[in-house]
Deep mutational scan, measured.
Amino acid sequence: EPLWIRPDAPSRCTWQLGRPASESPHHHTAPAKSPKILPDILKKIGDTPMVRINKIGKKFGLKCELLAKCEFFNAGGSVKDRISLRMIEDAERDGTLKPGDTIIEPTSGNTGIGLALAAAVRGYRCIIVMPEKMSSEKVDVLRALGAEIVRTPTNARFDSPESHVGVAWRLKNEIPNSHILDQYRNASNPLAHYDTTADEILQQCDGKLDMLVASVGTGGTITGIARKLKEKCPGCRIIGVDPEGSILAEPEELNQTEQTTYEVEGIGYDFIPTVLDRTVVDKWFKSNDEEAFTFARMLIAQEGLLCGGSAGSTVAVAVKAAQELQEGQRCVVILPDSVRNYMTKFLSDRWMLQKGFLKEEDLTEKKPWWWHLRVQELGLSAPLTVLPTITCGHTIEILREKGFDQAPVVDEAGVILGMVTLGNMLSSLLAGKVQPSDQVGKVIYKQFKQIRLTDTLGRLSHILEMDHFALVVHEQIQYHSTGKSSQRQMVFGVVTAIDLLNFVAAQERDQK
C-alpha cells in the first residue's frame, strides 16, 4: 500500500453525458421521505430548503428570480454533511469501515464536522487534520463531537509532509485500522450531490432553472449537481466560483495573481482535486475576500440567511453572472454553511477592521482624538531585521541585547519573508524542534498583521487588541530589464502597544 495517494490523481470516472444510468458502476440512493420521529440526527441530513432572495437581486438590477439552496440546514450545519454520511455509508457497505475503526480526514473543517457527527452516532474514533487558518468555532464544535484535532501550517503546499493532507496520511500509516475516506478522491463525494442535492433542486424548481452558481473546494458539490442538471435540464448554465489565490478556475489566465492566501474558508485549493470535473462548468468567476464577507453580511442583514463567507462569494458572483438572465428565468445559488463557524471572524466588526474589510468610518461609535491620525505620526525608528541564514542562537542574543521581542526576517534585497519572535524561538528550542545552530528560517511564521503608514491609529489599535505587534510595510514598484514591473513589500518598522501608548501619553502631556 502506498504511503500516500495524491489528492489530485487523474480521475478514473467514466461518467458521460447521455450515458444510461443503468451502466453506472456505483451504488445510487434515492431521496427517502422522513418519518415524523427521526431514529437519529443523521436522518436530518439532506432535504434542505430552497429560499427566495428578495432584496439583493433587485438591489443589483437582476431581472431573474434568485433562489438560495440553504445547505446550513443540514444536521452539522453545512453541505459537507451529505458527503460525510455518504462516504461512511459506502465504506461500511463495501466492508472497508468496521466497528471500532478510526476515521482520519484532512479538511478545512466542515467535512470534519460532518464526519465527527456521523462518527459520534456510529461509534468510530475520528481524527481531523486541518490548517491553522480555520476558525476556532470549527475546532470547538469538533472537540465537542469527540474528534481529535491536529493543526497544520496554512501556507504548507498540499504535497508537503507538513500539509493537512501529508499529516493525515502519516497518521494513517501509524494508526492500525485507520482510514482516510479522502473527500478529494472519493466518488461518494460527487455521488452524494448527484443522487440527492441535484434531485432536490430539480424537484423544488419543478425542473425549471436557467443558471446554477456554486463555490468550489473539493469540487464534489458542483460536479455532482452539474452532471445531473446537464442530464435533466441541459439549458442550465453552470457557474463556478473560485477565490483569488486558488488555481481551480479555467482558463488558467484567471488564476494569475501574486496573491497566495485568502481568508474565506472551505473553497479554493492549490491543486485540482480528483473529484472535480471542470468540463461540466460553463464559466468560472474569481471572487475576493472583501466581496465575500460584504455579501455574507448582506445576506444575514437583508435576507435573514445566517450563512458563512463562501455563501457571500457565491452570491457576489451570482449578481454578476445572472445579469444575462431575463424576467421569468431563474438562478439558484448554493449557500454551503452557517455563520456559526465564523462568529469571531467576519461577523465581528473588530475582525473586519483588522483585516481591512471594514473602515473605521463605517462604525458610528465615538472615537478618541488620536483615532484618525496616521501611523506615520508615530515617528517610528528604523527596524531591526535579520536574514533567514542567521542562526536561532545568534538571533536570540541580538533580540535580548537590543531589547526586542520580535524581528522581521528579510532577504538580501529587503523583501519581507516573515517574522521571528523570542517566545516562538525559545519554545521551539525547548520542544526540540530546532537547535541553536539551525537557521532562523526554520522558525519563520507568517501569521502576523501588516499595516501601512497611511493607515489610521484606530486601525492599529484594533490590531493591537488581539496581537502583540504589527509590521509596518510599504510597497515598492521595481522595474526589470524586460520592461515588466513587480510590486514588493518592504519593512518600514515594527509597532507595539507600548509605542502607541507612549505616543498618546506624550501628545497629551505636551497639550497640557
Score class of each variant (00 low, 15 high):
238 I>D: 05
238 I>H: 01
238 I>F: 09
239 I>K: 04
239 I>W: 04
239 I>T: 08
240 G>C: 08
241 V>M: 06
241 V>I: 07
242 D>E: 06
243 P>S: 03
244 E>T: 10
245 G>R: 03
245 G>Q: 02
249 A>S: 03
249 A>E: 05
250 E>S: 05
250 E>R: 06
251 P>L: 07
251 P>T: 08
251 P>E: 05
253 E>V: 14
253 E>D: 14
254 L>W: 07
254 L>F: 02
255 N>A: 03
256 Q>P: 07
256 Q>G: 13
256 Q>V: 14
257 T>V: 10
257 T>N: 14
259 Q>C: 11
260 T>R: 06
260 T>W: 15
261 T>W: 12
261 T>G: 05
263 E>N: 06
263 E>I: 04
264 V>Y: 01
264 V>P: 00
266 G>V: 01
266 G>C: 04
269 Y>E: 06
271 F>P: 00
272 I>L: 07
273 P>S: 03
273 P>H: 00
273 P>T: 00
273 P>A: 04
276 L>A: 02
278 R>T: 05
279 T>W: 15
279 T>Q: 14
279 T>R: 14
282 D>Q: 14
282 D>P: 08
282 D>W: 07
283 K>Q: 14
284 W>S: 00
284 W>M: 00
284 W>Q: 00
284 W>K: 00
285 F>R: 07
286 K>G: 00
288 N>M: 06
288 N>G: 12
289 D>R: 02
290 E>H: 10
292 A>S: 05
293 F>T: 00
293 F>N: 00
295 F>R: 06
295 F>C: 11
295 F>L: 11
297 R>G: 02
297 R>K: 07
300 I>E: 00
300 I>F: 05
300 I>V: 05
301 A>C: 10
301 A>S: 06
303 E>A: 04
304 G>V: 01
305 L>I: 08
305 L>A: 00
305 L>P: 00
307 C>Q: 06
307 C>N: 03
307 C>T: 10
308 G>L: 00
309 G>S: 05
309 G>I: 00
309 G>L: 00
309 G>K: 01
310 S>P: 00
310 S>R: 01
310 S>A: 03
311 A>S: 12
311 A>L: 07
311 A>Q: 06
311 A>M: 05
312 G>P: 01
313 S>C: 09
313 S>F: 03
314 T>P: 10
317 V>G: 10
317 V>I: 11
317 V>W: 07
318 A>K: 02
320 K>W: 03
320 K>C: 09
321 A>I: 04
322 A>Y: 01
322 A>L: 04
324 E>S: 10
324 E>T: 10
325 L>Q: 05
327 E>A: 11
327 E>W: 03
328 G>R: 15
329 Q>I: 02
330 R>W: 03
330 R>A: 09
331 C>Q: 05
332 V>D: 00
332 V>F: 02
332 V>Q: 01
332 V>T: 03
332 V>K: 00
333 V>P: 02
335 L>K: 01
336 P>M: 01
337 D>K: 01
337 D>R: 01
338 S>I: 07
338 S>M: 07
338 S>Q: 08
338 S>A: 11
338 S>W: 06
339 V>Q: 05
339 V>N: 05
340 R>C: 01
340 R>G: 07
340 R>L: 04
341 N>E: 02
341 N>D: 02
343 M>I: 09
344 T>C: 06
344 T>F: 02
344 T>G: 12
345 K>P: 02
346 F>K: 05
346 F>H: 04
348 S>N: 13
349 D>A: 03
349 D>T: 05
349 D>C: 03
349 D>V: 07
350 R>M: 12
351 W>I: 00
351 W>R: 01
351 W>M: 01
355 K>A: 06
356 G>E: 08
357 F>N: 05
357 F>R: 05
358 L>S: 08
361 E>W: 14
361 E>Q: 12
362 D>A: 13
362 D>C: 03
362 D>M: 10
363 L>W: 11
366 K>P: 11
367 K>A: 15
368 P>H: 06
369 W>D: 07
370 W>N: 01
372 H>V: 15
372 H>N: 13
372 H>W: 15
373 L>Q: 04
373 L>A: 10
374 R>M: 11
374 R>A: 12
374 R>G: 12
375 V>F: 09
375 V>N: 12
376 Q>T: 11
376 Q>M: 11
376 Q>D: 09
377 E>A: 10
377 E>L: 12
377 E>N: 05
378 L>S: 06
380 L>K: 11
380 L>Y: 11
381 S>W: 12
382 A>W: 10
383 P>L: 14
384 L>N: 14
384 L>D: 12
386 V>L: 15
386 V>F: 10
386 V>A: 13
387 L>H: 05
387 L>M: 14
387 L>K: 13
387 L>E: 13
387 L>W: 13
388 P>I: 03
388 P>R: 13
390 I>Y: 10
390 I>S: 11
391 T>W: 03
391 T>R: 06
391 T>I: 09
392 C>M: 11
392 C>I: 15
393 G>S: 15
393 G>Y: 04
394 H>V: 12
394 H>P: 14
395 T>N: 09
395 T>C: 06
397 E>V: 10
397 E>P: 03
397 E>D: 14
397 E>M: 11
398 I>G: 15
398 I>M: 14
399 L>H: 02
400 R>W: 10
400 R>I: 10
401 E>I: 12
401 E>M: 10
404 F>S: 09
404 F>K: 05
405 D>G: 06
405 D>I: 09
405 D>Y: 07
407 A>W: 05
408 P>D: 05
408 P>N: 00
409 V>T: 14
412 E>S: 12
412 E>D: 14
412 E>M: 07
412 E>Q: 14
413 A>V: 15
414 G>H: 06
414 G>W: 10
414 G>D: 13
415 V>C: 15
416 I>P: 06
416 I>V: 15
417 L>T: 13
418 G>S: 13
419 M>E: 05
420 V>M: 13
420 V>N: 01
420 V>L: 15
423 G>D: 06
426 L>M: 14
426 L>W: 07
427 S>L: 12
427 S>K: 07
428 S>Q: 11
430 L>M: 10
431 A>K: 10
431 A>R: 10
431 A>F: 02
433 K>P: 03
436 P>R: 13
436 P>Y: 10
436 P>Q: 13
436 P>G: 12
436 P>S: 12
437 S>N: 14
437 S>R: 14
439 Q>G: 10
439 Q>A: 11
440 V>M: 15
441 G>S: 11
442 K>C: 15
443 V>W: 09
444 I>Q: 14
444 I>A: 14
444 I>V: 14
445 Y>T: 10
445 Y>R: 08
446 K>V: 14
446 K>N: 15
447 Q>Y: 11
448 F>M: 06
451 I>M: 13
451 I>A: 08
452 R>K: 04
452 R>S: 08
452 R>Y: 14
452 R>G: 13
454 T>M: 15
454 T>D: 05
457 L>D: 00
457 L>H: 00
459 R>M: 13
459 R>D: 12
460 L>D: 02
460 L>I: 08
461 S>K: 03
462 H>I: 13
462 H>Q: 14
462 H>G: 15
463 I>A: 04
464 L>A: 08
467 D>Y: 03
468 H>Q: 13
469 F>A: 15
469 F>N: 12
469 F>R: 05
470 A>N: 08
471 L>C: 11
471 L>I: 13
471 L>S: 10
475 E>Q: 13
475 E>G: 12
476 Q>H: 14
477 I>P: 03
477 I>S: 09
477 I>N: 15
477 I>R: 12
478 Q>G: 15
478 Q>C: 15
480 H>W: 07
481 S>K: 12
482 T>G: 03
483 G>A: 15
483 G>T: 15
484 K>P: 14
484 K>Q: 12
485 S>P: 15
486 S>C: 15
486 S>R: 15
486 S>M: 15
487 Q>F: 15
487 Q>S: 13
487 Q>V: 13
487 Q>Y: 11
487 Q>D: 14
488 R>T: 12
489 Q>D: 11
489 Q>Y: 13
489 Q>E: 12
491 V>S: 03
492 F>E: 15
493 G>W: 12
495 V>A: 13
496 T>D: 03
497 A>Q: 09
497 A>D: 12
499 D>A: 02
499 D>H: 04
500 L>R: 02
500 L>F: 15
501 L>T: 03
501 L>R: 01
502 N>T: 14
505 A>W: 02
505 A>T: 13
507 Q>K: 15
507 Q>E: 15
509 R>N: 12
512 K>C: 15
